[in-house]
Design a protein around this nucleic acid. Structure first.
Length: 480
RNA sequence: GUCCCCAUCGUCUAGCCUGGCCUAGGACAUCGCCCUUUCAAGGCGGUAACACGGGUUCGAAUCCCGUUGGGGACGCCA
């Protein structure tokens, strides 16, 4: 059956988030798998907003989800469809099911149901609907009914999951679920079926938490006379304590990762490896992912979200990025960090050169921006420890010498600067570290930086001389 | 409580379907060494896992059963 669908080359997948929050890590992974599957098969990827819970859905979250999708570059071919715009369609199908006796009105109130559920749970019984309105002859006066779907009471339902294999459910376990609320709005388990059928979705790839809903949905498909799509249930993403990933575990919103200086490709790469692998390969370009992605090597067990590994991957991507690209990416961070001002002009060629020295030691754009400060800003801030260790009387004579020599230097380039340093250590009979470290602190404020000669070149003659002068002044009167 | 899913280093995973090539491979993290003006990056090396118990088999990480552990679902949420 699958081969059939694939041969027709009409794979259609969808991502169907509910706009009750930002796009989170788990949702993004689901979206990614659907996107990759569609792209791999040359199919269609649909975005559908499941906003039937009008009390919890907001416009703001719809925009946030779309923003997240765009940032991750998970482009969709159709949509975003919105279920709230399709209420007439669901209504039509509900009416049809009622006419055919496949659904019925339920007059139990939400409060009564809640009461019975709690009671059942406290007595250790399955909290299922007891079916009391199933065979009602007429309406109950003074009540607005909800509509329930009539599930089969015996037999079993088989889900042939693309990832889990065959999963068997006893129909006796399924209860008659509400497909339309008493206020006339349809519910998830119904709309998802109507839409997936209507939108001709061939592969439903979603979180594990939906596996139990699948048999119920299959009965709805059949009642509607529609083809049942293929299902693939992805394992959950857990936090470090092995419980479902949530805010408690730190940032879960995709946008939070953008703000922390992650590259979208790095996040995508990290996410795809949560539940999918390709031999020993860790780093994949998008093209490779599209080419290599298959549900065959999707995993079945839950994965713990590991921020450390994501950071490492991010560093890989920052390392690989060209300095020109990185210059563009880091701009918002420089602005936000007050390192450059809005409207301030900055030489992009020069910035790229500075980034070149920093990118292999930055794991995020935030770190990159932070390091860029001493290249760009007029004044530097000293790391107290570095200052104490290296800006002292002992290095004062070296500072004076280096200041004079650099002042006299015409070609202010790394190679020339190096010659100046080498000349001094030779003459004084000292090690490079004895002079390079104090200068590093004087010029960058830190005991850590890229190679000091290139740093000096990029910082430039004026600023370097000023900083050396300031260091000398500081040593002479430490109160400043 | 009922149902469903899952089970290899701390973490992500390869291997499992099609038993022997596994004295279990890779990656992150961690430790050590090398490189080195510092920090990274890089290179080299180390520590570290088949949850347990029964089967089946000449042989089991791989197949079967059970136990235990973890996760999920059971909504007029999605």
């Amino acid at each position: 059956m699958e081969a059939d669908i694939l041969n027709k080359n009409n794979v259609r997948t969808r991502f169907a988030p509910s706009p009750t929050g930002h796009l989170h890590i788990g949702g993004a992974r689901t979206a990614l798998f659907n996107w990759l599957f569609a792209r791999h098969h040359g199919g269609v990827f649909v975005l559908r907003i499941e906003d039937t819970d009008t009390s919890r859905s907001t416009e703001q979250y719809i925009e946030a989800i779309i923003e997240g999708m765009k940032w991750l570059r998970l482009d969709w071919d159709e949509g975003p469809y919105r279920q709230t715009e399709r209420f007439d369609i669901y209504k039509r199908y509900v009416d049809r099911l009622i006419d055919e006796g496949k659904a019925y009105y339920c007059y139990c109130s939400a409060e009564e149901l809640e009461q019975r559920r709690k009671e059942a749970l406290s007595h250790g019984r399955p909290p299922r609907y007891d079916g009391r309105c199933r065979d009602l002859k007429g309406p109950v006066p003074g009540r607005t009914p909800a509509v329930r779907f009539r599930m089969p009471e015996e037999g079993e339902t088989i889900v042939d999951d693309l990832i889990r294999g065959r999963v068997v459910f006893e129909n006796a376990q399924l209860d008659d679920l509400i497909i339309m609320r008493s206020d006339g709005t349809p519910t998830y388990n119904f709309t998802v079926v109507v839409d997936d059928a209507d939108m001709a979705i061939t592969h439903v790839i979603r979180g594990d938490d939906h596996l139990n809903n699948t048999p119920k949905q299959m009965h709805i498909y059949r009642a509607l006379g529609c083809d049942v799509p293929l299902f693939a249930h992805l394992p959950m993403i857990l936090g470090a304590d092995k419980t479902r990933l949530s805010k408690r575990h730190g940032a879960t919103s995709v946008m939070a990762y953008r703000e922390m200086g992650y590259l979208p490709d790095a996040l995508v790469n990290y996410l795809v490896r949560l539940g999918w692998s390709y031999g020993d390969q860790e780093v994949f370009s998008r093209e490779e992912l599209i080419e290599k992605f298959s549900l065959d090597n999707a995993g079945r067990s839950a994965a713990v979200f590991n921020p450390e590994k994501l950071l490492w991957l991010n560093s890989q991507y920052i390392n690989k990025g060209t300095s020109e690209e990185l210059a563009g990416y880091v701009m918002p961070f420089l602005l936000k960090g007050g390192i450059i001002q809005e409207g301030q002009s900055i030489d992009m060629g020069w910035l790229s050169k500075a980034i070149d020295t920093l990118k292999e030691r930055s794991r995020s754009l935030l770190e990159l921006a932070h390091s860029l400060r001493y290249y760009i800003a007029e004044d530097i801030e000293f790391d107290p420890k570095a200052k104490e260790k290296f800006l002292n009387e002992k290095s004062l004579p070296y500072f004076r010498t280096i200041l004079d020599r650099l002042r006299a230097l015409d070609r202010f380039e790394a190679a020339e600067i190096e010659k100046v340093f080498m000349g001094i250590i030779e003459k004084q009979g000292i090690k490079l570290g004895q002079i390079a470290q104090p200068v590093r602190v004087a010029v960058t404020g830190n005991s850590v930086s890229p190679g000091i000669f290139e740093v000096i070149e990029i910082v430039g003659k004026d600023k370097t001389l000023r900083r050396l002068e300031r260091a000398i002044a500081l040593i002479k009167s430490p109160i400043i």
